[in-house]
């Protein structure tokens, strides 16, 4: 479980960093999305991994730490909003400059 999760985080992060370094806005956007997936998984794992344990504190029963799940929810919402805004900004740059290069300079 730990190995699987760490490999998933590693692959997502490396793909994300690779895509962020591309020169067109769409791959950069995808890279940021992958990066935020990796970060969300990482946050989730910061409360330790437990199988078959709900995030509810009950006497005598096993439970998992609910706080990282709340943090992940917040992070997902914020990341989603930011990505949506970046998509709109990229579209606006495309319509203004006619290119989806991150450093588009051509005036229309």
């Amino acid at each position: 479980m730990e190995v699987l999760l760490s490999i998933a985080i590693g692959v997502l992060t490396s793909c994300g960093v690779f895509l962020v370094l591309r020169s067109r806005t769409f791959p950069v956007l995808l890279g940021l999305t992958l990066l935020s997936y990796a970060v969300n998984l990482f946050l989730f794992a910061s409360g330790r991994l437990r199988l078959d344990a709900p995030p509810l504190i009950r006497a005598g029963a096993s439970y998992t730490d609910p706080l990282p799940q709340a943090l992940v929810l917040t992070a997902i919402v914020i990341g989603f909003g930011m990505t949506a805004y970046l998509a709109i900004l990229a579209l606006r740059a495309l319509s203004e400059s006619g290119a989806d290069h991150v450093d588009a300079t051509k005036e229309p």
Binding site: V20, T25, V28, M82, L86, L89, A93, V102, D103, T105
Partner: peptide, 13 residues
């Protein structure tokens, strides 16, 4: 818009 894209990407990272 251009400055915005790099600013947003950088701050998201």
């Amino acid at each position: 818009t251009r400055a915005g894209i790099s600013y947003v990407v950088l701050n998201l990272v």
